[in-house]
Design a protein around this nucleic acid. Sequence first.
RNA 1: GCAGCCGUAGCUCAGUUGGUUAGAGCACCAGAUUGUGGAUCUGGGGGUCCCCCGUUCGAGCCGGGGCGGCUGUACCA
Length: 520
Amino acid sequence: MSKADKLKARAPRGFADRGPADLSATERMLAAIRETYELYGFEGVETPFVEYTDALGKFLPDQDRPNEGVFSFQDDDEQWLSLRYDLTAPLARYVAENFDALPKPYRSYRAGWVFRNEKPGPGRFRQFMQFDADTVGAASVAADAEICMMAADTLEKVGIQRGDFIVKVNNRKVLDGVLEAIGLGGDDKAGQRLTVLRAIDKLDRLGRDGVQQLLGKGRKDESGDFTKGAELADAQITKLLLFLFSPFGHTASPQPTPTDHSAETIEGTTIFKSTKNALAIQQLRKLDFESATYRAGVDELAQIAELVDAAGYEDRVIIDPSVVRGLEYYTGPVYEAELTFQVQDEDGRPVRFGSVGGGGRYDGLVGRFRPEPVPATGFSIGVSRLFSALRMVNSPIVSGQDKPGPVVVLVMDRDQVAAYQRMVSSLRQAGIRAELYLGSSGMKAQMKYADKRQSPCVIIQGSNERERGEVEIKDLIEGAKAAEAIASNEEWKAARPAQFSIPEDRLVEAVREVLGRHFS
RNA sequence: GCAGCCGUAGCUCAGUUGGUUAGAGCACCAGAUUGUGGAUCUGGGGGUCCCCCGUUCGAGCCGGGGCGGCUGUACCA
């Protein structure tokens, strides 16, 4: 059979395998997140990967494009099912289904895989993990403030330094109020409102000029592709910019970014960067848009600011009116956890990491299943994104030393496998990772195998040792160090560095000693 | 989705105006060493030159279409 006839071994586009190093590092990171969530009083819950499509709330697949955005399929009874694309909608379903039994407010966390059927890119997969925490049944913005503080604690817990991240907070009511006040209220303006929100959402990436273009006629990107704008009048744009930059400077990071300036001039008014949430609230009140929604939203932000400032989080949880988040179901406070440090990619170009998580209040979601309205708020961490960020800053939680490989018992004589297996068993019974070499190659290959497995040492017993009732232990870590000084192969072989012989009944003891040398 | 760039061994890449059997380094396997990781030397396995169609006596190279990758942009619960 020629190679062309063989199946090509490849993971599907946008799906990734994970090796042992990733697995254990991810596990450590998840444990740290879980610990923080637990500390705040949240409890675990798990829901399935698959939900009824209508429970996910987006849209029923139509016949032509049943998998637009989500992975969907039909059950025996014609019911549409979908792989979940976030953890919020499934939680809403769970809470509604178990409403009477759950304590309220119900506070729970869960980590899990979610799936999105869209074009993958670097660092962007069709299967990825989220780690959420939600408070359901609490209308008070104290719940929102708490979740923001918890997000900050979580990032520190996994090894992001204070100052290298911020949790930005805004309120959809504020945004809605501003849009209303500049004449974009009403159902007929829904499309335009959406375009405006999308433009605002891009502030940190495109900067003020880009957003200004998108609010007006539109913007052309580097490749010459044109994005149609919201077609707002200049007066409307000015008001929006005044709003966006009112507590100006809160997307700031130690390094310059497109949005990081110490002052901004809009229509002759120069606005200086403020660094205090209370000041930001003052500014927002000063703008005084003619909208009850706006004032209610600012009041909520003021409460949140007061709570986080009182708890000493004012340098990490920051009011920022440019945060938009999802366009689908958020109804009140929205938040976004952003990493503010810069790193270099492989080509040495500076890269900003940006958002590693976000969330907000979704008061309408559980209510879809219930006769009564149920307020809820929650936060979601993009586990994979956070993980690669931690890799880049070398957080000890992901770069910590991996556990050593197994002690490998070499097979010198095929007819002695039972004896070798006995050694393996005695090591295992002593709690030491160990294995018999199960391949068919010679000794040299077995040494290479042990090396690749990161074995701390190998056990050697040929006929010579057996006759004396001994085994040889070769310390591979020590040996590798010793080898650096050896140039010729003859010397290398003769020296047998870091190798010693012991009576067979002292095997466990001696291996323990070797392990103790390197992994105390 | 749209736009630009790109596609030769597991990886990084050479490959002349279109001309024998397509190369290198690294990696892998084996031997030198009948029982020792590294280094060195020698040898070996690996390719539908992304795919299809076309032009040509002849295509890795030229043309068209497709697929895939990267970058930007759009969408994003």
